[in-house]
């Protein structure tokens, strides 16, 4: 708790840089990315393809160490994966040979939690994510939307302080995608972990976020931040259905603004 007072921030990125050494030469994916995330904030990140968004999450999750700068969680340098950071992958990345329940409890089992405690948590999140009745199904027996629910349940079951989501709905069809967006907001609001959510959809970004971060083209830096909460000024629209929010003039204006920012970065490339 004392740590939290250090910065008042949950996550802090300080001049983060990442250079990949590949056979074809070195690629600078991130260069001088700085941003502070407060606890319980829902952050969405947009930017051109290849600008280092996934790299940013890899560093935050502890899967990769940055080549320069620092990523801090709760004031401490991130040195590797830990149970307080959970990730939902674009490709779902479920273990095909494990049934739903075993997929969800994977992280809890690794952390050494007793079976009874695990069962309780897993059952709870199976209910929350609408997977009741599918506990013993294998991932391949589920639709894409259901598979992503499993991946979300697997992450939420860790009760992480930080929830990292890398284009989690990109592989879903439009209808499933809308449903999942609304449900994610509902599930998130129960415990409000800090969220970093990468997306290609400007609409999705503006609908869910407290703040939208726009990144520059590669090597990725923070281009600008749009504080959705401050812009709205009253209750956030993410508690309402998307099709209604789409009609709100302020929503349309912000969507346009974010899109213009992203487009400028894409067109510099062209």
């Amino acid at each position: 708790m004392a740590m939290e007072q250090d910065t008042g921030n949950d996550l802090s990125f300080q001049n983060l840089g990442m250079v990949y050494e590949a056979r074809t030469g070195s690629v600078a994916a991130l260069d001088g990315f700085s941003f502070d995330v407060r606890a319980n904030e829902f952050i969405t990140i947009v930017g051109p393809s290849g600008c280092g968004k996934s790299t940013l999450l890899q560093v935050t999750s502890g899967l990769q160490a940055p080549t320069s700068g620092k990523a801090l969680l709760n004031g401490r340098s991130i040195t590797g994966p830990s149970p307080d950071k959970a990730m939902v992958f674009q490709s779902f990345s479920l273990f095909p040979w494990k049934p739903v329940k075993q997929n969800i409890e994977f992280g809890l089992r690794v952390s050494g939690m007793s079976r009874a405690e695990r069962d309780e948590l897993v059952d709870y999140y199976i209910g929350v994510t609408g997977l009741t009745g599918f506990e013993n199904h294998y991932p391949r027996q589920l639709s894409g939307g259901m598979q992503q629910r499993v991946a979300i349940a697997r992450a939420l079951a860790m009760r992480p302080r930080v929830l990292l989501m890398d284009e989690p709905f990109a592989a879903l069809d439009a209808m499933n995608r809308t449903l999942m967006q609304e449900e994610l907001v509902r599930i998130w609001s129960e415990h409000k972990p800090t969220v970093l959510f990468i997306t290609h959809s400007v609409e999705e970004a503006v609908y869910m976020a407290d703040k939208v971060l726009v990144m520059t083209k590669r090597p990725g830096r923070l281009k600008c931040t749009i504080d959705i909460n401050a812009e709205i000024g009253c209750a956030h629209w993410r508690t309402q259905p998307i099709d209604e929010v789409l009609l709100v003039p302020k929503f349309q204006e912000l969507r346009h603004r974010v899109w213009e920012e992203v487009r400028a970065e894409i067109e510099v490339n062209a």
């Binding site: 830990s82 950071k85 959970a86 990730m87 992958f89 490709s91 273990f95 994977f106 690794v110 860790m158």
Partner: peptide
């Protein structure tokens, strides 16, 4: 990607071998 998933959820090299690579 499955190795990454296992690692994010805390698996070390031996668990990655036993629970991801082997199956």
């Amino acid at each position: 990607r499955l190795i990454d998933a296992a690692r994010v959820f805390g698996a070390g090299p031996l668990r990655v071998l036993a629970e991801v690579a082997l199956p």
